[in-house]
Nucleic acid binder design. Sequence first.
DNA 1: ACGCTAGCAGAATGCTCATTCTGTTTGTCG
DNA 2: CGACAAACAGAATGAGCATTCTGCTAGCGT
Lengths: 185, 185
Amino acid sequence: MPRLTDARKELRRAQIAEAAVRCFGRNGLERTSIADIIAESGLSAGSIYAHYRNKADLVQAAAREVLAERAKVLGEHAASDTPPDPDELLARLIAAIDPAEARVGVQTWGEATTNPAIRDIVVDMTNRMRAMLHDCVTAWLVKVEHREPAEARESATPIAHRVMALYQAELLYTALRSPTEETTS
Amino acid sequence: MPRLTDARKELRRAQIAEAAVRCFGRNGLERTSIADIIAESGLSAGSIYAHYRNKADLVQAAAREVLAERAKVLGEHAASDTPPDPDELLARLIAAIDPAEARVGVQTWGEATTNPAIRDIVVDMTNRMRAMLHDCVTAWLVKVEHREPAEARESATPIAHRVMALYQAELLYTALRSPTEETTS
DNA sequence: ACGCTAGCAGAATGCTCATTCTGTTTGTCG
DNA sequence: CGACAAACAGAATGAGCATTCTGCTAGCGT
């Protein structure tokens, strides 16, 4: 086949990345072999290496996917037109945590401690999420608490920081709570 | 040589475990080979396998060591006779964080998501630390805030939970902040 | 002081796994 | 509709690594 249309190519990449995420969630980043991903995706070695340069590249894609997914959920709540107060915001975020993704997320933290590429991805995503939280808290302060916008932005900073920290801790607890089970019916 | 005295044996085990922790902090749990630990400890393969059954055993020892170290620091502050308020307690705990140990700590979280033995160690240590925090907060509520002991114990629970979460988040940030540098003198 | 055996060094082994290579198939463009 | 090259399958390759094996050495009990 000649060059696949760009849409198709992205689809294959996503298919592979999703299979990788499932494997990582089950066995961890390093204990997952390419053979596992081959089995999970139903493709072959040649195919995978046609879409990703190597395993590190795949791990990065998986990390980006998981973190972006969590950022998306957060963005949806943040964009709400009736801003929830911080406690409610946190509760909603926690309720939206998926155990499997939490596991991979925590694994990326561990990997980030020694892998600069992953580290950059994690730090960037964390900053982005904190910025979203900041917007959300600011909106709440302005619309519900009737603060001045400028002052609201400032006092939102420590609150956003706090919500982020508590969210991440909860992510850790979720990841540790569900060890390896999950027989997907 | 005949059987080493028990003290000497423990010393060797510690020497190996400490070398392992240094390697893990530098390269991560899985990217550290036994050869690395051999080089770092100045011992040999035979010697290491005389003291630890296998690499998984060593990883467990390292995890226990790092987590126990953090628990020890916490315990010292918790035992203070002039209990600090929660914010101060948290600040002190954060000030006592060592970047290298933070990295290994976060790595153990990642490993815990798929490795039951490590998971048990992490969960156990986390519970133990939370219990210490609970004691500390209770003491503060009783001695400084003059609450009734029974009521203090109860309202200390969510506070301890919160302090623990914020501490863990800070541990993560520390681990991510210092990538791989650390030229030991 | 001496010998026995546990501790230790370092080479050898064998396996796992990422990556590459060789054909084969199939989607797209002219 | 046909042909060309990309996409794919699956076997082959080779490196790295945990673990074991073979002796040698030295600390401890006597």
